[in-house]
Simulated scan of single mutants.
Amino acid sequence: MVYNILELYSGIGGMHCAWTESGLPGQIITAVDVNTVANEVYKHNFPDINLICRNIQSLTSKEIEKLDVNVILMSPPCQPFSRNGKYLDNNDPRANSFLYLIGILPELHNIEYILMENVKGFENSTVRNQFVEKLKQCNFIFQEFLLCPMSIGVPNSRLRYYCIAQKNNSSWNFKRKDDIMLSLPKDYEEPYSINSILETDVPEKYLVPQKLLKRANIFDICHRDSRRSCCFTKAYSHYIEGAGSFYTDASPATIKETIEKANSYELGNDEFIHTISELKLRYFTPKEVLALMTFPKTYSLPKTVTTKQCYSISM
């Protein structure tokens, strides 16, 4: 079977890359996103794809039917369901476009397969309940997952919700469960080391500013042999707490010794900052963050996009 795909909330093409990596036959017929910067990056990497810059709520069911697609890949806005987004659920305006799609799903007669990704927290939302009820109404069978990249050998902690759905009655290649599955029906090797994704000759602009080192006690610090890193968010390089990990070339022993020495001083004073600065902590570069999210090595970011924009659209 050949899959003709509509990629909604296409962003910078994460779903596109994932589909290509899967090896499944098929093609992205149309991608849709309203973010102009993300679209610039998408077009830079996939120049031949029909990319539409539109609010998804402006797409009618007739327009989607005319595209002759049978698969939808989508990552709707996660802010309505996240802690940082105040968990407003269906009362958040950013959920409106997905609620619109749920509403027109019965009119999308050609759609046979759906893959939807969102943040942990979505599984407890009113919007999730509406989504799965509509899937049932439209005779889809589906399976929900909560999965972390660490569980499939990727050194990044980024727990996410996934739902796969199909409209025919063919069997899954694994035993389906009514409950949300917390692992894939396959064992993977332990995460590889971060060393494999590091860039060389990283510019000094990525060093953590001295003024921020006074809060180094809350930093999550990685080294080249680390097999884990924290979840990166859009706030990376703008905020410190909960936004992502930092990197140092120092060895684990040196990191431990330096932190112990820094902690002998008053938190945040000049001696503390001077000691921590010896680690030469830096941010992961946008390219390294993309690698931790398993974007292919061939993927690139146009020079017209700023570093701040790169972080923002990559998360």
Rank of each mutant, 00 (worst) to 15 (best):
A262P: 06
P286C: 02
V41S: 04
L198M: 12
K186I: 11
F122C: 05
L267I: 02
G268Q: 06
G14K: 02
T60L: 01
N173H: 13
D220S: 11
L182A: 07
L292T: 04
P93Q: 06
E133P: 00
K86D: 02
F81T: 00
N139Y: 12
C163H: 06
G153S: 10
P76K: 08
T254C: 09
N173L: 13
S183A: 14
P155C: 07
Q309L: 02
A31Q: 04
S151H: 12
L88Y: 12
I114R: 02
K120M: 12
F81W: 06
T285W: 10
M15F: 15
C53S: 14
T258D: 07
I49C: 08
I313T: 01
H16F: 10
I114T: 03
Q210V: 09
T233G: 12
S151Y: 07
K120C: 11
M15N: 03
Q166W: 10
E204V: 08
V69K: 00
Y239Q: 14
Y236V: 03
Y3L: 12
I5V: 11
M150Y: 09
A165V: 08
A38W: 07
N90W: 04
K177H: 14
S170M: 11
K287T: 03
I102E: 00
Y283D: 04
S229R: 01
P209Q: 09
I221V: 09
K43T: 13
R227I: 14
K287S: 06
Y87F: 15
V127T: 09
H16A: 11
F284P: 01
R160F: 07
Y311C: 00
F46L: 04
E199S: 15
V119R: 05
S251A: 10
G103A: 00
T258Q: 09
C163P: 09
D225V: 09
Y192E: 11
F122I: 03
L184Y: 09
V154M: 06
D178E: 15
N39A: 14
F174A: 03
S183D: 14
D249R: 10
S229W: 08
T30Q: 13
M74G: 05
S58C: 08
Y161M: 06
T233E: 05
F272G: 03
K167L: 12
N84W: 09
